[in-house]
Design a protein around this nucleic acid. Structure first.
Lengths: 146, 146
DNA sequence: CCACATACTGATACCTAGTCTCAGTTTGGA
DNA sequence: TCCAAACTGAGACTAGGTATCAGTATGTGG
């Protein structure tokens, strides 16, 4: 279980460990996919109905600052919260079929951004990518016909 | 003035021309940068206080379907509405300093997406990019010192 | 140029996401 | 074990956005 790692990351960000944070991070960890605000609140409420909405959002904010959670934009402009395995800035490939998430490291997008910088004379200082499609498994299934 | 073009695009999408749509599209056109929901509602209300909020949002939706308006995510996860000069799917480079928007055509990102597809075995079917930084003019200013 | 189906509008109520405040509780370092 | 600082829950509040519904405008076909 990686809870120890999670706790370590929270502590490393200079934040306190509380049962609420443990629980919220745990929910996201077990989900393994981005959760919309309501899904998350529901799931948290199911495990401990005593946790208030304000705490959920505050915790999400803290976890984002700690680099543990990323706020991603799901299809249809819905906000989603995702527990990130890798630290540091990175992007995600979201499978529309099974909801799986694959990390796209910053290193892979850097050359592309450099190209854009060169072509447009534009100094990029922040970029987020939302890439949707079919992951390897789901794409295979589709192509295999049925 | 490109209003005729705008109207043409609305008609081409099989939608009716109404004074409200004219006005809302006009506000976005004159802004030349993405407007947050509230800014847009305010600006519309200033030109014609009779236009209801519901109409503004409905119109935005219609215009999005017609490919005239894009919903972009501004920094801080704020939703913004932007009138797009070029039709078809494309992306934007947003200058943090002056708010200017530069189009990034799909053709420029396609090779990058192909690379991602090859590297991850992921079949991309939709991607949105949010790229922030300094446009040519603002970057120059910064570097020139002052 | 008139009639009419259909699309659009404004008002209003409602929903979800997210923030703010405040009094009380927990945490963890000294 | 003490205590400041950080965190919590409740609840009120704001903003963005949607649904409903009765009335109005649009534009097409005659």
């Amino acid at each position: 279980m990686s809870s120890d790692t999670l706790r370590g990351r929270i502590l490393a960000a200079g934040q306190r460990i509380t049962p609420q944070r443990d629980l919220i991070a745990g929910v996201l960890e077990r989900a393994g996919r981005p959760l919309a605000a309501q899904e998350l609140c529901d799931a948290v409420g199911q495990e401990d109905p005593g946790i208030g909405r304000a705490t959920v959002f505050r915790t999400l904010q803290s976890l984002q600052e700690a680099g543990i959670v990323q706020n991603v934009t799901l299809l249809g402009n819905q906000a989603g919260y995702l527990l990130c395995a890798s630290a540091g800035h990175h992007h995600h490939l979201v499978c529309r079929h099974c909801g799986a998430i694959e990390d796209l490291p910053e290193a892979e997008v850097a050359p592309f951004l450099s190209g854009v910088e060169a072509a447009h004379g534009f100094g990029v200082d922040h970029a987020t990518f939302n890439i949707y499609g079919a992951c390897r498994a789901c794409a295979g299934e589709e192509h295999a016909g049925r």
